Amino acid sequence: MSEQQSSTPPAPVTRLRDAGVAIWLDDLSRELVRSGELARLVAERGVVGVTTNPTIFAAALSRGDAYDEQLGRLAAAGVDVDEAVFTITTDDVREACDVLADVHRSTGGQDGCVSIEVDPRLARDTAATVETAKRLWEAVDRPNLYIKIPATVEGLPAISDVLAAGISVNVTLIFSLSRYAAVLDAHQTGLERAAAAGLELSTIRSVASFFVSRVDGAVDARLDALGSPDAESVRGTIALANARLAYALHQQVVSSDRWRALARAGAIAQRPLWASTGVKDPRYPDTLYVDQLVAPGVVNTMPGATLEAVADHGHVVPDTVTGTYTRSHEQIETLGNLGIDLDQVTVDLERDGVAKFEASWDELLQTVRAGLDAHAPEGTS
């Protein structure tokens, strides 16, 4: 590939952008930032944002030596493992924010953002989530930062509190339409409180991360156990149906009188963000959760492999969501008639999602603890 060619995003990427889809990368590491790879992905793959989570950080810390120097300094300073993790992750996110600063400026603050997650062990603790979100915001100290807060029952008031403080939020771990409706309400409540406090609403941004592939993973296993033609007919359709109906809900909210009042005060709509878009079932096209979720004003956050697949052979056409709502309802109704309760599936997925992030956080702590011990001054480990 020539230099001239390499600076032009591939056609599927351009078509996604033109259809109103913002491409965010679901990955971050110090090597990705400092090697120039993130900047290359911005230039060549149309990446306009980055999301992180404990699993991503744990993987980054477990490979290579990019963190050795900092681990040595932290060990010499006698920093404990929790503070070391806080310092390392906020440093990575701050550097990524700086790489994306030009995108943030050129899009008027709409994109060019990086998300960092509150310690997942706090997912059931509203007050601690709010406190940690504010601490992360102050530590990174960049306008293009989003704080990720899980959409647990306890997370909902935290979302409102953090937005009311003027902090941008990425709401994560959304699986069900009912919980998404509660998230949309929490977002508006936070902005209403921010407006009452005299804050500038246009600087407070939010996305709502609606998880996709994990829904098919859980539902398809139940359908396969049934083994009937009706079960086979909806295999691989429920995650898309669920997400498409979430977009319909988003459209309803931004058409409401409540939202119009906020918009007149300068508020910016919370965008749906399609998360967990890597295809896990090899029987499905590897770009399924990108090609089939094209709609204006959404974000699709992709792992690197999915991004490359889309760039290579994505079949992107404008708006594969609007107009699908009746069929989506029918598919979910068929699922219920088969005896599979989607509401229970999503409850289980939220519980498992929190548990997986807690496990990844424990892995991250263990990795950093081992690094601190390895770099500790002689006689102190």
Rank of each mutant, 00 (worst) to 15 (best):
Gln366Cys: 02
Leu349Ile: 02
Ala218Thr: 03
Asp348Thr: 11
Gln331Gly: 02
Ser106Cys: 00
Asp352Cys: 00
Gln110Cys: 02
Ala225Cys: 06
Gln4Cys: 04
Asp224Met: 11
Leu245Trp: 13
Asp125Asn: 15
Val118Asp: 02
Arg244Ala: 11
Lys280Pro: 05
Ala376Pro: 01
Glu330His: 14
Leu184Thr: 07
Ala76Phe: 01
Lys148Glu: 12
Gln252Ile: 00
Pro10Gln: 13
Gln344Glu: 15
Lys134Arg: 15
Thr8His: 13
Lys280Trp: 07
Leu335Ala: 10
Arg135Ser: 11
Lys356Val: 05
Arg235Thr: 11
Gly236Trp: 04
Arg205Met: 10
Gly109His: 07
Ser213Thr: 13
Val290Arg: 10
Ala181Met: 04
Trp274Phe: 10
Asp312Val: 04
Asp125Glu: 12
Val93Glu: 05
Arg121Glu: 10
Gly198Ala: 13
Val212His: 08
Leu32Glu: 05
Val215Lys: 07
Gln292Asp: 13
Thr277Trp: 08
Tyr67Lys: 08
Ala133Thr: 04
Arg94Tyr: 00
Leu342Tyr: 07
Glu44Cys: 07
Leu122His: 06
Leu74Gly: 04
Thr14Tyr: 01
Val169Ser: 07
Tyr146Met: 15
Glu363Ile: 00
Glu358Ala: 08
Leu145His: 02
Lys148Gln: 12
Leu249Ile: 01
Gln331Glu: 15
Thr132Ser: 09
Ser168Pro: 05
Thr189Ala: 13
Leu342His: 06
Thr129Gly: 04
Leu100Met: 08
Asp348Lys: 11
Val347Glu: 13
Leu25Cys: 09
Ala208Leu: 09
Pro318Ser: 12
Pro229Asn: 07
Ala267His: 09
Ala58Lys: 13
Ile174Arg: 07
Arg327Asp: 15
Val162His: 05
Asn337Ser: 15
